[in-house]
């Protein structure tokens, strides 16, 4: 019983951590998309500046990315289709990590365009690649957590009965012994 105490705490904490992860990742995605959506042409420039995609594809991505970020962000915040949204969110962030690392490795001097703007940096401006990568990598981890421990508290998925994992939590909450004993065993 003593040994199962911390694991019970962990189990109560997990859904809350998921909720926080969802809100953070979703919030960042919404902010990033929102700041870019007013100026789609700029967003196209930002994507092209990475010199990673052929021009036609970069144009499509430039137009589509901001709205995709917002939609996925909203889904994460309200906890709807949490797993799917988490996977897309994490993949997006992973793609950003890759893109920034690419720009860095190729010696491009660009603003990541993560929150609008983007493109070439002016004189005297220094790119903050490492910071961008660390931030985005942290968000990848949050996304992965959300997928693994979906959907967390305050999720529409649970309200609509869409959450497959929810039932497991409930059973665990009622009878924490089963799992705990196995672990002790």
């Amino acid at each position: 019983m003593v040994a199962s105490q911390p694991s019970r705490n962990v189990r109560t904490a997990v859904p809350w951590v998921t909720t926080v992860a969802r809100l953070v990742l979703g919030g960042v995605l919404i902010a990033a998309g929102w700041l870019k959506i007013g100026n789609p042409s700029d967003s196209v420039v930002a994507v092209k500046a990475y010199q990673l995609l052929p021009d036609s594809l970069a144009t499509t991505v430039g137009y589509g990315l901001p709205i995709l970020e917002i939609v996925v962000g909203v889904l994460l915040v309200v906890g709807l289709m949490t797993r799917v949204a988490g996977v897309i969110g994490a993949l997006l962030m992973f793609a950003f990590v890759f893109g920034i690392a690419w720009a860095w490795a190729h010696g491009l001097r660009i603003d990541c365009g993560c929150f609008g703007g983007g493109g070439q940096l002016g004189a005297g401006q220094q790119p903050a690649y490492l910071l961008d990568i660390l931030r985005d990598f942290g968000l990848v981890v949050l996304g992965a957590w959300t997928v693994r421990f979906a959907p967390g508290h305050f999720a529409l998925d649970s309200a609509l009965g869409l959450a497959g994992g929810e039932r497991v939590y409930r059973q665990d909450d009622h009878g924490p012994g089963v799992h705990g004993q196995e672990e002790m065993g």
């Binding site: 196209v44 137009y63 589509g64 709205i67 939609v71 996925v72």
Partner: peptide, 25 residues
């Protein structure tokens, strides 16, 4: 049904948004 509905709405929103952004530009 719920999942499909949400999914279709989300995809439609992305498509419309991208189309709108492109047409505005």
């Amino acid at each position: 049904v719920t999942y499909m509905t949400v999914g279709v709405v989300a995809v439609a929103a992305v498509g419309l948004g991208a189309w709108y952004a492109a047409s505005k530009s």
